[in-house]
Design a protein around this nucleic acid. Structure first.
Lengths: 76, 76
DNA sequence: GCCCATTTGTACGTATGTATG
DNA sequence: GCATACATACGTACAAATGGG
């Protein structure tokens, strides 16, 4: 999971975990990834930290976000 | 009323106000408390902040919510 | 059954303040 | 000073349930 003691920033650790889940097909194209709130609860992180991780994935083109609906795995 | 400058979070201040109104019988059992929108307007708060306050009361067992209808004072 | 207003629920975007290293 | 992280707060948008006409 996530190691709060380690040297890697938490938002980067979370981004890496989500990247894996996408690569492994656990999160599928055009299907939503878990919401900010549920990720927040699942990993015990603050909202801003989760947002930060999702922003990273968005900049990587791995996901796209529809406001008011959710964040989805991008086709590529 | 509510003190935006004070150290107490706004949602906690609002929760305290509603708790008083219930305790004082101003809001009665099985009668609805004001809607999110009207509380929002009455206190000049954002929707999320009001929702947060109501969640607190719900967890305290002071109110129960029926989606699409409203939030009501619990019997106890 | 259908539209519409009201109300709650969920979700994202952004901003600010505080604390830590 | 800066990056990271948390908590709070505002604003907006979409979804679901209720009830009236």
């Amino acid at each position: 999971m996530i190691d709060p003691e380690g040297p890697v920033p938490l938002y980067q650790q979370l981004a890496a975990i989500l990247r894996e889940r996408i690569r492994d097909g656990e999160l599928r194209v055009d299907r939503p990834i878990p919401s900010i709130l549920s990720l927040q609860q699942e990993f015990g992180l603050a909202r801003g930290t989760v947002m930060h991780a999702v922003e990273v994935l968005r900049q990587d083109g791995l996901v796209y976000t529809v406001r008011g609906k959710g964040t989805f795995v991008a086709r590529r």
